[in-house]
Design a protein around this nucleic acid. Structure first.
Length: 502
DNA sequence: ATTGCCTGCCC
DNA sequence: ATTCTGC
DNA sequence: GCAGAATGGGCAGGCAAT
């Protein structure tokens, strides 16, 4: 896109980048660049919707050698024929970043409003067939009656229920009248659709991953007793020697694989942990309670050691719950999910369905800010992400261990050490050492406390480690960079994780 | 053939 | 994934 | 509580440059 804008406006890519750094939005950038240019060259031909559509269509169809250049030309052509305002939204459309405050929720409401049907009916239909094109068509042609007829279709992915993060085990088990605790596995959400001999596998984002997991398909075909059904579960990778869960990174080598699939599944065997059933022999089970669904689940599968129901335990006793939780961690799993036995299956929701996730809180780390990236969108003009480093005790050098982009506030707060994006940017400005495009390097002065879920081995960062899900906690004004945590501590924490310690 | 960057999708 | 914010 | 918009590590694969 940078190149396309440069070409359309007739300036260098560097100059486009310069503007982009300030605006944080290539749409805004191209708008202002085009309007400047237009003051000089007037009278371009008018762009039509048909032309825009044709070019976008053509872009989507190009592939193979030299395709990038052709795509670039097609975008540049549109941009150079567009008015400033048109260019802004063409750029944003291509980048899929409209930034107009409209996403699924508003489209849903708009469909309801346009065809005078209820939001709930639109949402209900969309949950089962997540395609607003289809849903809007039915809403227009058949109204509520049509929407209510939507059924879960085997082979078509639907919106799945999610879990909410809970502050602690005690809060979680006292949230509901009757709860079950289940192991939380660090793997890949897997929806198994079965229709006779036919099996489909989908991820939580509706992707069809059937071809990448022939081993899973085979297990499903063999172990599911029900003729037609949809099962919900989590697939993890196992170490082929020890049989213990492998880090998510290893499982992920299998997820998008198109080649050498057979070889990969020999290397990383899988284990399927089923925790729900959503459809059985023609009936949608989402309106049953979890307790009822779980009984159906037990009847639907013949369990083996690699294809089974997630390990669960019914209790309201905190001591017992804690024991079970520790057991999960010791087994190398991620934590537990506490489930409301009386909750229905609520697609797309984190709260209404009564699933609470509990994971151990890791000791935080004090690291040094050594760089940053200029933010985009609502973070324009501020450092939107911080580059972190850990101290190497022998040399005193600061070795990069990842980036961080969440936890910083937009609004001021009184909390000690808390910082808004603006304040952080102001603090860092005097420390700039060099800039390269959107990247900035800072003198290593500021120490911040960061939280995370896991320390990973990293192939990208020089320290050899990176943080999974890092977030900002506070600035350590009381610490200089030489007092920041060092690599030894990071290594020690890495080794203690996942039941390896204790 | 190898490397390096980008995209899309898993968490 | 996590987090913050406006509604 | 939801919705929307910021942002993370890391993987396979696609393509361009070398």
């Amino acid at each position: 896109m940078l190149k396309a804008i440069a070409k359309a406006v007739g300036i260098s890519v560097e100059d486009v980048v310069k503007d982009y750094k300030k605006s944080g939005d290539l749409g805004t950038t191209v708008e202002s660049l085009v309007s400047k240019k237009r003051q000089r060259t007037l009278g371009a031909e008018q762009l039509t919707v048909g032309k825009v559509f044709a070019n976008l269509q053509a872009i989507s169809e190009h592939s193979g050698s030299g395709s990038q250049d052709r795509k670039l030309d097609l975008i540049a052509e549109l941009l150079s024929q567009a008015t400033a305002l048109e260019a802004k939204y063409i750029a944003r459309t291509v980048l899929e970043q409209l930034r107009i405050g409209v996403a699924e929720g508003l489209v849903r409401d708009a469909v309801a409003s346009a065809y005078n049907v209820s939001v709930d009916d639109v949402e209900g239909a969309w949950n089962l067939l997540p395609d607003f094109g289809e849903v809007a068509k039915v809403a227009k042609e058949d109204g509520e009656k049509g929407l209510k007829k939507f059924k879960l279709r085997l082979g078509t992915p639907f919106i799945v229920q999610l879990a909410e993060k809970s502050p602690g085990l005690k809060e979680a088990i006292t949230s509901f009248k009757k709860v079950i605790l289940e192991y939380k596995y660090d793997g890949m959400r897997t929806l198994i659709h079965k229709k006779g001999e036919k099996i489909w596998l989908f991820t939580r984002n509706l992707e069809n991953i059937t071809v990448a997991f022939p081993d899973l398909v085979q297990m499903a075909r063999k172990q599911i007793k029900a003729e037609d059904c949809v099962l919900d579960g989590e697939t993890i990778g196992l170490d082929k020697k020890t049989g213990k869960p492998v880090p998510f990174q290893q499982l992920s080598t299998r997820i998008k694989r198109k080649y050498d699939i057979e070889k990969a599944f020999g290397e990383i065997p899988i284990e399927v942990n089923l925790f729900d059933i959503v459809y059985l022999d023609g009936k949608n089970l989402m309106d049953l309670t979890f307790e009822e669904r779980r009984k159906y689940l037990e009847k639907a599968v013949k369990e083996t050691d690699k294809f089974h129901i997630a390990k669960g335990f019914v209790t309201s006793d905190l001591k017992e719950a804690e024991t079970f939780y520790k057991e999960a961690l010791k087994a190398g799993e991620e934590g537990v999910i506490v489930k409301d036995m009386e909750a229905l299956y609520v697609p797309g929701r984190r709260v209404a369905g009564g699933w609470l996730k509990i994971k151990p809180v890791m000791e935080s780390l004090d690291v040094v800010i050594v760089g940053g990236t200029w933010g985009t969108g609502k973070r324009a003009g501020t450092i939107g992400s911080l580059h972190l480093a850990i101290r190497e005790p022998e040399t005193g050098r600061f070795l990069e261990c990842g980036m961080l982009g969440t936890g910083l506030k937009e609004k001021k707060s009184e909390q000690a050490g808390s910082a808004t994006l603006k304040e952080m940017t102001k603090l860092l400005k005097p420390l700039v050492e060099s800039e390269d495009g959107s990247l900035v390097r800072f003198k290593p002065k500021i120490v911040i406390e960061v939280a995370y879920e896991e320390i990973q081995k990293s192939p990208t960062y020089v320290s050899g480690y990176a943080l999974r899900f890092p977030r900002f906690i506070r600035i350590r004004f009381d610490k200089g960079p030489d007092e920041a945590d060092d690599l030894n501590r990071m290594e020690k924490l890495y080794k203690q994780q996942k039941g390896r310690g204790k």
